[in-house]
Amino acid sequence: MRVLVLFAHPLSDSFSAALHRTVVEALTRAGHEVDDCDLYAEKFDPVLSAEERAHYHDEPENRAPVEGYVQRLLAAEALVFVHPVWNYGFPAILKGFIDRVFLPGVSFRMENGKAVPNLQNIRKLAAVTTYGGDRWRTLLMGDPPRRIMMRSMRVRIKPFSPVRYLALHDMNRADEARRERFLQRVKREMERF
C-alpha cells in the first residue's frame, strides 16, 4: 500500500521526530511503499496567498501552486499524520498544508453547493500525536485535532475506511518509560496498518 506520511515538527531530536522515525520504519518493515513528507525539511510554505484564496474554487487553477503535493496525496492509498498538538491545534505548517492542498477538486468537490468527499483513493487514515496537557484538559477544550481527524478527515476519504488516532497526553510530564511504551504502541499499530 502507498502511504503518505505527513510529518510536522521542526526539531530532529524531538519526541515527535522519534515517533516519525518509528512510523516510517514500521510501515516500511510491513512492506508498505512510504512517501515520507517532512513539511519542515521540505520547507513547505503554509501561507495561503491572496491570489490562491481568490482562485480557491477555480479548478484546476487552484492546484497549480501546490501541484506536486496534490499529486502525492492523490497517489496515496493511506495517510498517516505525525505531529504534536500545540495550543489545542495543529502546528501552523500542517494547518497550512491542509488549507493549501486539501482543495476543492482534490479532497472534496462541490455539487449543487454541497461539499462531496473526493479522496476515495485513501483507504486508511491514522494520526500519531502528543499533547502537552492531560486528557481531561484536552476534553474540556473540545480536542479540536481529534475531532478534525475523526470527523472532517474521515468523511473526505473512502467510506468505512479504518481510522486510528494514537495520542500521548500529558507529554510535559511523561517520563522515559511512558514515552517508550507509547513508541512501542505506535510501532505495533504501524506494523499492522
Rank of each mutant, 00 (worst) to 15 (best):
L4N: 05
L6G: 06
H9G: 09
H9I: 04
P10R: 10
L11Y: 14
D13W: 11
S14K: 10
A18Y: 00
H20Q: 07
T22E: 08
V23H: 01
G31F: 07
G31I: 06
D35N: 10
L39N: 01
A41I: 05
F44D: 10
R53K: 14
R53M: 11
E59Y: 15
Y69E: 13
R72V: 11
L73F: 05
A75D: 14
F81S: 00
H83P: 03
P84S: 10
V85R: 02
N87M: 03
F90D: 02
F90Y: 15
P91I: 09
G96T: 11
V101I: 09
F102S: 03
V106H: 06
S107Y: 03
E111G: 07
G113Q: 11
V116D: 06
L119F: 12
K124Y: 10
K124A: 15
A126H: 13
A127E: 00
T130P: 02
W136Y: 09
L139Q: 14
I148V: 15
R154F: 01
I157Y: 06
K158W: 10
P159Y: 00
F160Y: 13
V163A: 12
V163C: 09
Y165W: 14
L168P: 12
L168G: 08
H169L: 02
A174L: 10
A177R: 14
A177W: 05
E180P: 03
R181M: 08
K187V: 05
K187M: 07
R188I: 04
E191K: 05
R192I: 04
